[in-house]
């Protein structure tokens, strides 16, 4: 178990995430232009902040799921930007489903709804956060897709 944990910790660093070319030259490059890379507060979100749950049980579940499913199948076959883009929608949908299922757990690790000051937010934001989000009808990822990477073809996606 100890060894398993160690290798898991290693694979939870950003360095590990972008050690393969398809991650570095696609998603990482895109992340750099967004608010989760540079912002006025200087707080940076790294790949594992959004993609690996912090709770141990979830973590393993996610890890096993990831290695078995889509990701495992797809990576290794992607070696050009075109091939990456061809698979992007499948990969994105997988992440949306996961974040929908866990009520955007990773987002909430940094953005805690209880401490959101609506009066300090823009009118557009406060309006949505105090209604659909507060009632639990919607979760972060329902309204905030594409906050860290470029979007795939959004035809048929709910809310677009």
């Amino acid at each position: 178990m100890g060894a398993f944990n160690t290798s898991l910790e290693l694979s939870n660093t950003e360095e590990f995430c972008i050690s393969c070319h398809e991650m570095e030259s696609n998603v990482y490059e895109e992340l750099k232009t967004t608010i989760h890379f540079t912002n006025r507060s200087g707080v940076r979100a790294t790949c594992p902040d959004c993609h690996v749950p912090h709770k141990w049980t979830n973590k393993i579940a996610r890890k096993m799921q990831a290695s078995k499913e889509v990701w495992g199948k797809i990576f290794g076959t992607i070696n050009t930007r075109e091939k990456f883009l061809a698979h992007r929608k499948t990969l994105a949908e997988h992440e949306w489903d996961r974040l929908k299922a866990n009520d955007s757990l990773e987002c909430r690790n940094c953005h805690n709804f209880d401490y959101m000051d609506f009066t300090a937010q823009s009118t557009r934001a406060a309006q949505q956060h105090s209604t659909s989000l507060a009632s639990g009808e919607k979760t972060c990822i329902d309204c905030h897709k594409g906050i860290a990477h470029q979007l795939p073809d959004m035809k048929g996606v709910e809310g677009w």
Partner: peptide
């Protein structure tokens, strides 16, 4: 009257129309 940082408008999507 609002920010549009990172709102994508391209072949794949039109964030404004969302």
């Amino acid at each position: 009257p609002h920010t549009i940082r990172n709102y994508e408008v391209n072949l794949n999507t039109n964030k404004c129309m969302a």
